[in-house]
Design a protein around this nucleic acid. Structure first.
Lengths: 152, 152
DNA sequence: ATATAACTTAAAGTTAACTTTAAGTCAATA
DNA sequence: TATTGACTTAAAGTTAACTTTAAGTTATAT
């Protein structure tokens, strides 16, 4: 089964122009063309695009992804290099997730804060609450807002 | 304790120009100035900047954060609106975390793939492996790469 | 009193990752 | 065979979020 750029874009949920841009930037050197010059995407290309999407989500730029594609094009001699790249990406994603967890904690605190304010009809009381009266699982997030207080 | 723009930037780990840019964009209407016109950041401002950072991390643009700041400036009448905003942000961050989890699964598969290739000295074997011979916890990620195969 | 480091503003510059446009070609349907 | 919709390229345009520059001011240390 072969796909045109529009079909593959639909499957991936991106614009056709995005795939053409990736091609122009050297991310898709493996895409074959019909006699008339039309791009023909295969299942293998879909896989490669999924991996490209994964690397993008992990924080790599288009240029960096290009250099990975070039690496992959060199075959077995770059296996170790590619392993290291994916290991580094894995650590980067773990870090991103940790940061998002912190953000989530803060948002949970803020939701609690505004739920309380809503019940009271005013921020007046909740804004002056004692740290001990904040639900235990939200105290850490609150402390992060207070950090400067602990300095002289 | 008061901080200049440079000191506050250092504490937050951003450029002073970033804080000036935020101020220009209306994110910091509450920052006071010295007689000479120098910005003086307080603990309260630090808290506000932390919340701004949290909203940014959750996916809000500078403009959207500005409209939140304006909301907050209106006081108690916007409590419910702000609650809804934080609830929406919380859902957005959860979704982001789910997406990152998928990315992590894929990276774990890729790490396993290249570790195996490294042991073998070639991708030859691992690239042709039977799905059943892939470690159980990695099979889901592998399936995502294969999805198009299941279509006609 | 003066040097210097950090502050001020407005305006221009940067960068990444697309998206749009224009002019033209290919491929499937009536 | 003609129409139509999707394809092609190169080049220009867009957007967000800063960053840099230039010209000048404030605050601190000697």
């Amino acid at each position: 089964m072969l796909y045109t750029v529009g079909e593959m874009a639909k499957v991936l949920g991106v614009q056709p122009s995005t795939l053409r841009y990736y091609d122009k930037e050297g991310l898709l050197p493996f895409i074959e063309r019909s006699e008339g010059g039309i791009r023909m995407f295969t299942q293998k290309d879909y896989e490669a695009l999924k991996v490209i999407g994964c690397l993008k989500q992990s924080g790599l730029s288009i240029k960096e992804i290009k250099s990975f594609i070039e690496m992959a094009g060199k075959g077995d001699e770059t296996i170790e290099e590619r392993l290291k790249l994916f290991q580094t990406r894995r650590e980067a994603v773990k870090k991103q997730m940790d940061e998002l967890k912190e953000t989530l904690d803060m948002l949970n605190f803020k939701c609690w804060y505004y739920e309380t304010a809503k019940k009271d009809g005013t921020e007046e009381n909740v804004s002056k609450i004692n740290p001990e009266d904040i639900p235990a699982h939200l105290q850490q997030a609150k402390k992060k807002l207070d950090m400067l207080y602990s300095e002289k």
